[in-house]
Amino acid sequence: MNPAEAATKAAGILGNKAKMAKLLDVRPPTVNQWCSGVRPIPPARAIQIETLTKGQVKREALCPSFPWAGAAA
């Protein structure tokens, strides 16, 4: 699963893209850009999304370029 697919899956779990944007306190176009792969998902947002989806969408799937193994939990 690439980051855009992971973001789209998260939006579906949370209701829709607009609801995900509201929960994350970001603008809806930002979520649309994440879901289309136009904009990368920042590591901090990946952690928030993982928490909001109760681990159904992992931070590693949302932001695979970040060195998660070396990051503190």
Rank of each mutant, 00 (worst) to 15 (best):
M1G: 12
M1D: 09
N2R: 12
P3Q: 10
A4N: 07
A4G: 01
E5H: 06
E5Q: 14
A6D: 03
A6I: 06
A7N: 02
T8E: 12
T8D: 09
T8R: 06
K9S: 06
K9E: 10
K9L: 11
A10W: 01
A10Y: 01
A11I: 07
A11R: 07
A11Q: 07
G12V: 04
G12H: 03
G12P: 02
I13A: 06
G15T: 04
G15S: 05
N16I: 04
N16D: 12
K17R: 14
K17D: 04
A18Q: 15
A18K: 15
A18R: 15
K19Q: 13
M20G: 07
K22I: 06
K22M: 11
L23H: 09
L23G: 07
L23F: 10
L24P: 02
L24V: 03
L24D: 02
D25Y: 04
V26H: 08
R27K: 14
R27I: 08
R27S: 14
P28R: 07
P29S: 08
V31C: 03
V31M: 03
N32T: 15
Q33L: 11
Q33F: 10
W34D: 00
W34L: 03
W34P: 00
W34M: 03
W34G: 01
C35D: 06
C35R: 01
S36M: 10
S36Q: 14
G37D: 02
V38T: 10
V38Y: 07
V38I: 13
V38R: 13
R39F: 10
R39L: 12
P40C: 07
P40E: 12
P40M: 06
P40T: 09
I41A: 00
P42V: 03
P42N: 04
P42E: 08
P42L: 04
A44P: 06
A44H: 14
A44L: 12
R45E: 11
R45D: 12
R45I: 10
R45M: 15
A46N: 07
A46Y: 06
A46V: 07
I47G: 00
I47T: 09
I47V: 15
Q48M: 13
Q48F: 08
E50Q: 14
E50V: 05
T51K: 14
T51G: 11
T51Y: 14
T51R: 15
T51I: 15
L52W: 03
T53A: 00
K54Q: 14
Q56N: 02
V57N: 05
K58I: 11
K58Q: 14
R59E: 06
R59T: 02
E60F: 03
E60A: 13
E60P: 02
A61R: 09
L62M: 05
L62Y: 05
L62V: 07
C63E: 02
P64C: 04
P64R: 01
S65G: 01
F66E: 05
P67I: 04
A69L: 09
A69Y: 07
A69D: 15
A72V: 09
A72E: 13
A72D: 13
A73N: 13
A73R: 14
